[in-house]
């Protein structure tokens, strides 16, 4: 009599021949088939469409004309705005993800410990998750309004300024603010993942470490961190993907301005596609973005694997 375990662990152990066995062997394929078909249909077709568009002369309404090969990519790579947007995208992604991790680790450590009002604290930290990014950005645009915004109102009332400050007038102020908002909205997800990781760490090893006289920092460095490292890695990879593709914050606050100084690849892409009607180049940007992200993720995965291989 075969059991589920047998199917799971030793599919080769099943007697060959017979309809039942054949069905069992194909069972996992039937189980993944819907997801595969569904994804290929809803995501795969648009990707195919994207590749087609990037290789053809195309009008602003997406009607394909002649095949032009890599011409759109050449135009793109000759555009200084593409390169400056790419660099800014990297700054944006690294800034937001790094900032998020640096804030979320201590926050998660605190929220994992037992203290008065922890439930309330957890709910407050999760709050940014409850508003959509677009709405958050709209609220901040209003908050940062130079004349009537509440940030200046507060600074006035505290006597810190006597003239309105236009927070979004220059990239020097606007871009760091956008990164800070990016961090703020990424904290809930990241903290939740870390809390999940911390909750899976068994209590008793801390007791043992404490008895051995390890300091709080040593316990964190040598016990907690290695144990939640998989969670940190997951959070980093997912955040990189989300932040790299994140559109509403910058779009709502500055639309990439002034003078393209806060443009990242997604805002550049959006303008190319929907403002300027250059669908061919826009498709090329999409594919370039995908390539960068893929490279990013592969390098990261490779670094992790190397680290694990080197670990004792």
């Amino acid at each position: 009599m075969s059991s589920v375990r047998a199917i799971a662990e030793r599919p080769d152990a099943l007697p060959s021949g017979g309809l039942r066995a054949a069905m069992r062997r194909s069972a996992p394929f039937w189980m993944i088939a819907p997801s595969l078909a569904f994804t290929i249909f809803v995501i795969g077709y648009p990707v195919y469409d994207l590749v087609q568009t990037s290789l053809h002369d195309v009008n602003r309404f997406g009607q394909l004309r002649g095949f032009v090969g890599t011409e759109h990519f050449a135009t793109l790579f000759a555009d200084p705005l593409f390169w400056s947007s790419l660099v800014r995208t990297l700054i944006w992604t690294v800034g937001v993800v790094l900032g998020t991790i640096l804030v979320s680790v201590p926050v998660a450590l605190i929220l994992n410990d037992d203290f008065a009002g922890r439930g309330v604290a957890r709910v407050i930290i999760m709050l940014p998750w409850a508003i959509s990014l677009t709405m958050t950005a709209i609220v901040w645009r209003w908050t940062l309004n130079g004349q009537a915004g509440m940030l200046n109102a507060t600074l006035f009332e505290l006597g810190l300024i006597d003239q309105p400050v236009e927070w979004l007038a220059t990239a020097g102020a606007a871009f760091p603010i956008e990164i800070a908002i990016g961090i703020l909205v990424s904290i809930p997800f990241t903290t939740t993942v870390f809390l999940g990781g911390l909750a899976s760490v068994p209590e008793d090893i801390y007791e043992a470490a404490r008895l051995d006289g390890a300091t709080a920092w040593q316990r964190f460095r040598h016990l907690t961190l290695p144990l939640i490292r998989p969670f940190v890695n997951i959070a980093i990879v997912l955040n990189i993907i989300y932040v790299f593709n994140s559109f509403p914050i910058i779009w709502v606050l500055t639309q990439g301005g002034p003078a393209n100084s806060t443009d990242i690849l997604v805002t550049y892409l959006y303008k190319l596609a929907f403002r300027f009607g250059k669908l061919g180049e826009a498709s090329a940007v999409s594919l370039a973005m995908f390539a960068v992200l893929l490279a990013f993720t592969l390098v990261y995965a490779w670094m992790l694997m190397r680290k694990e291989a080197n670990a004792p």
Partner: peptide, 26 residues
């Protein structure tokens, strides 16, 4: 199985905004 896992990771990397034109046509 490995391929399927990779496939999932790759779809995770594509965000709606990058594919919006193709999705709309679909």
């Amino acid at each position: 199985q490995g391929w399927y896992r990779q496939f999932l990771l790759i779809t995770q990397m594509l965000s709606p905004i990058v594919l919006v034109i193709g999705i709309f046509r679909l």
